[in-house]
Amino acid sequence: MMKHLYVDPRKEEAPTRDRKAHSTSLPKAKETKLHPTSPGGETASLFFVGTATTILEWEGIRVMTDPNFLHAGEHVHLGPGVSAERITNPAVDLHDLPRIDVVLLSHYHGDHFDQKVEESLRRDLPIVTTPHAKSCLQSKGEDSFSEVHALDFFQSLMLDIETGSIRAGRKPGIKVTGMPGQHVKPGLLSAANNLLKAVPPTNGWMIELGYRSASDSESFENAYRIYVSGDTLMVDELKEIHERYKDQSIDLMLIHLGGTTIPSLAVPLLMVTMDAKQGVELIQLIEPEVTIPIHYDDYDLFASPLSDFKKAVEEAGLSSKVVYLDRKDEYKFKV
């Protein structure tokens, strides 16, 4: 039986401990992008905050991915002897966010869940994440997060949205499924990482926006499907995503790029996120209707700039299927 998480977006609470939202909406987007070939009828939006932080809005609910709200010049710890400096600012400050209903956290790493976020988020904010991250978030004694839900690869959870309205016997719902991801490719380095636990396990996500019967909590009909790659390399495990969804459309892919290199660009021993070449390979494997690159230039460990990805996309003849967002831009789409 599928796990369920009940969410009531009618409760206007800030995601931070003070619980008093400073705004009821996100800031006005710097630029709004639409479907590159068939715009019209938009009913949902994705707001790009920076790094891997996005905010999805649909049917009155807000889902935030990988909250990272440090500013330029601040540092995060990424493992033994590894730190990174942020070189950009987020599109909105953490304490200026409106209500957030659920957080999807791909893994427990400072550039996805920074120290200020960890200090500031209210402890009962629902977080969907990996089993490893759940153990970390709930190991803080009285200061632990209380609403953490773990999903392993291909496990699913239904966000039951309590809007108070039922249309034609149906209610909106969001199905979240954990997708495979690997920060380190199999081999000696992976074995060493398993021993040292330097780089944490990571998930991607399949987010399905749709409707369920008001009388049957297990029913669900997808209307729009979003794949979020998470911090992964192009590994064989991703082929299973193609196999499972090859007869189902993937409308949008958010792809984590940057070619993150540790311990530093000066000593590039290990790449732990996709570079431009791997990013194009993932588009060709998943075949989404639209791809939006994120996680590409916010920290000083990113070795593969967005310009490399744009060039690779053009050379592959995929430009009509990619939309580029800067921080504070939004993508509106039809569900």
Rank of each mutant, 00 (worst) to 15 (best):
K3D: 10
H4R: 11
H4Y: 11
V7I: 15
E13T: 10
A14K: 00
D18A: 05
K28N: 14
E31T: 13
T32A: 04
T32N: 05
P39G: 07
G40R: 04
F47L: 01
T51R: 08
T51E: 14
T51A: 13
E57H: 05
E59T: 07
I61N: 03
R62H: 07
M64K: 09
L78Q: 08
G81A: 06
V82T: 09
A84T: 07
A91S: 11
L94N: 02
L97K: 05
I100P: 15
V103A: 02
L104K: 00
K116Y: 12
S120I: 04
L121C: 03
K134L: 06
G141I: 07
D143Y: 14
S146C: 06
S146L: 10
S146M: 07
V148K: 00
D152G: 12
Q155F: 06
L159Y: 09
E162Q: 15
G164A: 04
R167M: 11
A168N: 14
P172F: 04
P172W: 03
G173C: 15
I174H: 04
T177Q: 00
G178H: 08
V184C: 04
P186Q: 11
L189V: 13
A191V: 11
L196R: 11
L196Q: 08
A198F: 08
P200H: 00
P200E: 01
P201S: 01
P201K: 00
T202G: 07
N203H: 04
I207T: 03
A214Q: 15
S217L: 14
E218Y: 15
E218Q: 14
N222T: 07
I226V: 06
Y227I: 06
M234A: 14
M234T: 05
L238V: 03
E240H: 08
I250P: 04
L252Y: 09
G259E: 08
L269T: 06
M271R: 15
K277Y: 13
G279C: 05
V280N: 02
L285T: 02
P288H: 00
E289A: 12
E289S: 14
E289V: 13
V290I: 15
I294N: 02
D298T: 11
A303M: 10
S304Y: 05
L306G: 00
V313Y: 09
L318G: 07
S320H: 14
V323R: 02
D329A: 06
